[in-house]
Simulated assay, not measured.
Amino acid sequence: MSARLEILRSRLQQYIDCEAAILAGAQEYMIGPRQLKRANLNEISEMIRYLEKEVEAEAAKTAGRGRNRVVGIIPRDL
């Protein structure tokens, strides 16, 4: 397995964990008059979708099923 694939899977898992924390109520809180907002759920969801596509593409590439793979050639005399 390639190092890039491992990094992508690790980042994807971190974003999934972050999304779970936000959904559990850790997105924003107030201390006195101050309010802290940690992350935007839409941005995290978009990044999860992006990373899922990247992981899928990298896994296909390492398995030899990249997008430029030649399946077969039929010679024709026109």
Rank of each mutant, 00 (worst) to 15 (best):
A59M: 07
A3N: 09
A57T: 11
N42L: 10
I22Y: 10
D17L: 04
A3W: 03
A39K: 09
L8N: 13
I48N: 03
E6N: 11
G32Y: 02
L51A: 09
S10N: 15
R76H: 09
R34M: 13
Y29N: 05
L51I: 05
L41R: 14
M30Y: 01
E19M: 09
N40M: 07
R69N: 06
E28L: 03
N40H: 08
A39T: 09
L78Y: 14
R65G: 10
E28F: 13
S45W: 00
I74K: 13
P33E: 10
A24Q: 02
Q27E: 02
K37F: 10
P33D: 09
I31P: 01
A39V: 14
L41H: 01
R9N: 15
R34P: 00
G32K: 04
G72L: 07
L8F: 07
R9P: 05
Q35G: 08
R9A: 09
D17Y: 04
A39F: 02
R34C: 12
A60F: 05
R76N: 08
S10R: 15
E19K: 12
D17W: 07
Q13H: 02
R76W: 10
R34S: 15
D77R: 15
Q27S: 08
M47Y: 00
P33I: 07
R67W: 07
L12W: 00
V71L: 13
M1I: 08
M47H: 04
G32V: 11
K37M: 11
E19I: 00
E43F: 05
P33M: 07
E58M: 03
M47A: 11
N40C: 13
L41D: 05
Y50N: 07
I22R: 10
S45N: 12
E52P: 01
P33G: 06
K61M: 02
N40I: 14
